[in-house]
């Protein structure tokens, strides 16, 4: 039992750890714009926001690569908003409010959308619960002791050797040897 809990907890730990790290990476940062004045906005700033906004009238096309006139207008809108000192988040909020959450690559974390964050974690935890119960049942059913014999039989086939590889560890090498001794 103990041996089993270890890998599962490691898996879980890694998973949560990974989730946390992934969300850390996702947080980009933009320099705060100076107040009250129109500032120069580069294409790169526009694109870095536009790539997270999907064209509302085409399908699955982010604004930064979309080639239609409408998308060009939206990019201009983003530029204007940045020039007026709005932040990245302001722009996202504007698009989400006006066009609906579906235009954001990462939909707003509210309402039904929360499922997108809950479901993966829930799937792994609930699935993991049933999976570990299933594994335990299988383990209970497994006879103890006699399998060790099988292993000894298998390893016994391998002739002792001075090779640095712990060849008795590998049933495959045993198989190679068996093939060769035929």
């Amino acid at each position: 039992m103990k041996i089993f809990r270890l890998p599962i907890s490691i898996l879980m730990g890694l998973f949560l750890f990974g989730m946390a790290s992934a969300s850390v990476i996702a947080q980009g940062s933009t320099p705060p714009p100076p107040d009250g004045e129109v500032r120069e906005v580069t294409d790169n700033e526009v694109n870095s926001i536009a790539r997270e906004v999907y064209c509302p009238v085409c399908e699955s096309t982010p604004l930064d690569v979309c080639q239609t006139q409408a998308c060009a207008d939206w990019r201009d809108l983003i530029r204007t908003k940045l020039e007026n000192g709005e932040t990245r988040q302001d722009v996202y909020d504007y698009f989400a409010e006006q066009y609906g959450g579906r235009v954001l690559a990462t939909p707003p974390r509210e309402g039904l959308n929360l499922l997108l964050w809950i479901m993966p974690v829930a799937a792994v935890i609930i699935g993991g619960f049933f999976f570990s119960r299933f594994m335990k049942n299988l383990r209970m059913a497994g006879g103890d002791g006699k399998e060790d014999e099988i292993e000894t039989v298998e390893t016994a086939v391998v002739p002792p050797s001075s090779s640095p590889i712990p060849q008795s560890d590998d049933e495959y090498i045993a198989q190679v040897e068996r093939e060769l001794s035929k």
């Binding site: 579906r102 235009v103 990462t106 997108l116």
Partner: peptide
């Protein structure tokens, strides 16, 4: 009543830990 959309960042966040495992 409104068709939602799930963008790549959501997939990446949810799946990258599993792919690493």
């Amino acid at each position: 009543g409104e068709q939602g959309f799930v963008g790549p960042p959501v997939y990446e966040k949810a799946l990258s830990p599993l792919f690493l495992v």
